[in-house]
C-alpha cells in the first residue's frame, strides 16, 4: 500500500551570505496513515525545515527544494501550485508551533479564530461554526469552554493557548498533524496534558502525527518510529523502543546518554554524564562528502572523513548512516 506521505531524496538549499548550503541533504522517509513519528536532534539539524517543506512553507527567496519529491496521498507536492498547497494546508496537513502566541491573532477572540477555520473548511453558518468552536474547546479540555470562547489570546495561559492551537488544527480534521516542539515553552504537567490530548485525538480521528522535539523522553512517550537528524542528514531511523534499547549511530547513542534521565528508582551515586564533545557544524560545512559527525565521534577513522557513509539497514527495521553501525 502507498504510504500517506512519502519523502524521497529531498534536498533543500538555503541561500545565506556564506553561499548555498543543503539544510536538508538527501532525506527519504515514509509516514503511514495513523502512524506517529518523531524527529529528534540538536537545533540547526534541519528538523523544522523538513516540516516546513512538507507544508510548502519554506522561507521565500532563502529556501528552495533543489531536488527530490514529497508525495501526499500519491500527489506530488514539490510542484503543486501555491493555491493547491494552501488548500492542503487548510484541509489535510496542519501544523502547530512552539510559541502559540505568535501564531494566534491577538485582536480576535479565540472563538472567532476557531470558527473562521471551521467555516472555511466545512462551509457552516456563523452560528453553527461558533457552536462547534465551543465543542472543540471543550474537546481540548479548556474548562468552562462556553465562557472562555470569547476570551482573547492574551487572557489565556501558555498551555491554554497551545490547546487553542490544537483546537484550530483539529477544526480542519487533518490527516497529518505536524507539531514542532509543541510543549517546549510549557510546564511539564501541562505538557503531559497536551500529550494525552494528542494521543486521544490520534486514536479518535486516525490522524498521523509528526512531532519534532529534542526530548528523548517525549519521543519515547509519543512516537512509534523516530528519525534522528544531524547536520541536515538522517543519522538514524527506526522503531523508538529498539533505538533507545540499542542505538546504531554514535550520535544517537550520545543523544541518549548525555541526558540525565529519571529512572524508575533514584540511586545515591551519580556518574558524570557522557559527553558528546564539540557542537553541530555550521551550515557552510553541510553537504560535504564525509560523515559530518566525524569531528565529534569517538569511533572516527580515516574512512569517515574520506566518504559519506551510506545508510545501513538492520533486520529489525533500524537504519543508520555510519560506517561502523554494526559495532555501535
Amino acid at each position: 500500500m502507498e504510504p500517506l506521505l512519502k519523502v524521497e531524496n529531498l534536498r533543500i538549499e538555503l541561500t545565506t551570505r556564506a553561499g548555498v548550503a543543503p539544510v536538508i541533504d538527501n532525506l527519504s522517509f515514509e509516514l503511514g496513515a495513523g502512524e506517529s513519528i518523531s524527529f529528534v536532534g540538536e537545533s540547526g539539524c534541519g528538523k523544522s525545515m523538513t516540516a516546513l517543506s512538507i507544508m510548502g512553507l519554506l522561507p521565500e527567496k532563502v529556501g528552495r527544494i533543489a531536488s527530490g519529491s514529497i508525495t501526499f496521498n500519491g500527489e506530488e507536492l514539490t510542484t503543486a501550485s501555491p493555491k493547491r498547497l494552501r488548500d492542503i494546508r487548510g484541509n489535510d496537513i496542519s501544523m502547530i508551533f512552539q510559541e502559540p502566541m505568535t501564531s494566534l491573532n491577538p485582536v480576535y477572540t479565540v472563538g472567532e479564530q476557531i470558527a473562521e477555520v471551521i467555516r472555511a473548511h466545512q462551509g457552516l453558518s456563523r452560528k453553527a461554526a461558533w457552536n462547534q468552536a465551543v465543542e472543540l474547546l471543550d474537546a481540548v479540555r479548556i474548562p468552562n469552554a462556553k465562557g472562555r470562547v470569547s476570551d482573547y489570546p492574551f487572557q489565556m495561559s501558555g498551555g491554554q493557548r497551545q490547546r487553542v492551537m490544537i483546537a484550530i488544527a483539529l477544526a480542519c480534521e487533518p490527516k497529518i498533524l505536524i507539531a514542532d516542539e509543541p510543549t517546549t515553552a510549557l510546564d511539564v504537567t501541562v505538557q503531559a496534558q497536551i500529550f494525552d490530548l494528542l494521543n486521544d485525538m490520534k486514536r479518535q480521528t486516525g490522524a498521523s502525527i509528526i512531532m519534532i522535539t529534542h526530548d528523548m523522553g517525549a519521543v519515547a512517550e509519543m512516537a512509534e518510529r523516530m528519525i534522528v537528524m544531524y547536520a541536515g542528514r538522517k543519522a538514524e531511523e527506526g522503531p523508538v523502543e529498539q533505538i533507545i534499547e540499542h542505538p546504531r549511530h554514535p550520535y544517537t547513542r550520545g543523544l541518549i546518554s548525555c541526558v540525565p534521565h529519571i529512572m524508575s528508582s533514584i540511586s545515591q551515586e551519580r556518574h558524570a554524564l557522557t559527553e558528546v564533545p564539540g557542537i553541530v557544524p555550521s551550515l557552510s560545512d553541510f553537504g560535504q562528502n564525509r560523515c559530518l559527525f566525524a569531528s565529534r565521534c569517538n569511533m572516527v577513522t580515516q574512512k569517515c572523513v574520506d566518504e559519506r557513509p551510506p545508510e545501513k539497514p538492520f533486520a529489525n527495521g533500524q537504519k543508520a548512516a555510519c560506517w561502523f553501525a554494526e559495532e555501535v
Binding site: V188, H261, S264
Partner: peptide, 10 residues
C-alpha cells in the same frame, strides 16, 4: 508528568 526513556519507569 516527566516523560521518560526508561520503559520500566513509564
Amino acid at each position: 508528568a516527566v516523560p521518560s526513556v526508561d520503559k520500566a519507569r513509564r
